[in-house]
Amino acid sequence: MPDSPTHPAPLRISELTVRYGQTTAVADVSLDIPAGAITAIVGPSGCGKSSLLAALNRMTDLIPTAVVTGHVRVGDTDVYDVRTDVVALRRRVGMIFQRPNPFAMSVRRNVTLALREHGVSDRAILDAITERALRDVGLWDEVRDRLDRPATTLSGGQQQRLCIARAIALEPDVLLMDEPCSALDPIAAETVERHIASLRGRYTVVLVTHNLAQARRLADHTAVMWLHDGAGRIIEHGPTAAVFDTPTHDLTARYVRGLQG
C-alpha cells in the first residue's frame, strides 16, 4: 500500500449544470481535464468556479438546495450514477479548501484519521504514509518533532500544507483545490504554490483561483469562467499559454490584460 503508484485520472465534464434553488450557478459546462496535469479554472468572483469544483466530488450533496444535472466522469467512474458510492468517490477525488481546515487533533492524527477509517491499522504503514505525505508538502522537517501536538498550533501556511498532506495520504487520483493560497500571507502562499507544482504528473489537479499570475505559473491548462445571463459558463479553455497570449474570446482578452473582471 505505501508503495502503490498513483493513477492520475482524467475528468470529463459534460453539460454540467448546478442550481441552488432558483439560482443557476453553473450552466451547461463541458470540459475535458487531462490526467496528471494541473488545470486552472479562473474567472471573476461569483462566476461559479467553486460550485463547478464542488460538483466534481459531489460536495454539492452537502448543500440541501443544490441540484446538479449533467455528467462528470472520473476515469471510468460516473460521478452522478446512482450506484456510485460517494464516500469511495471522495477517497479518489481529494479536496483542498480556501481556508485551511485541519481537524482539532494532533498533526499525526490529521493525516492518519481517514486511513484508519478506511481500514489501515498497521502502525508502521501509517507512520510511513504520514512521513511520505508530510515530505511531499515540505512539512516533515518542520513538524517531525511535534507530530503529536495539536494541528491548530501550526501556522496558516503549515495548516494548509497539512491539509494537502492529509488528502494525498489517501493516494487520490484527483485533487481539487479551491483557491488554496488566497487565505495565506504571500510567503506561505509561495511555499504552498511550490508544493502544488511538485504534484504535477502524480495527480490530476484542478485548481480554482482568482489569481491570474498563479494560474499562469502553475497551470498546464486554463479554463476561463464568466457570468453569462446570471450563470457561470466556460467561455474559453486550452493550454495556459494560448489562453493568456492568444485568447480567442474578447472577454478573456480583456480579463487576462486586467481590464475586466
Binding site: M59, L62, R91, F97, N101, F103, L113, A114, E117, H118
Partner: peptide, 20 residues
C-alpha cells in the same frame, strides 16, 4: 469547514460525527 473537510476525505457519516 471542518465538516466539509471530513466529508471530502471520504469519511462516512458515522466517522464524521464521532471521529471529527
Amino acid at each position: 469547514d471542518t465538516r466539509r473537510g471530513a466529508a471530502a476525505l471520504g469519511l462516512s457519516r458515522r466517522a464524521i460525527a464521532w471521529r471529527v
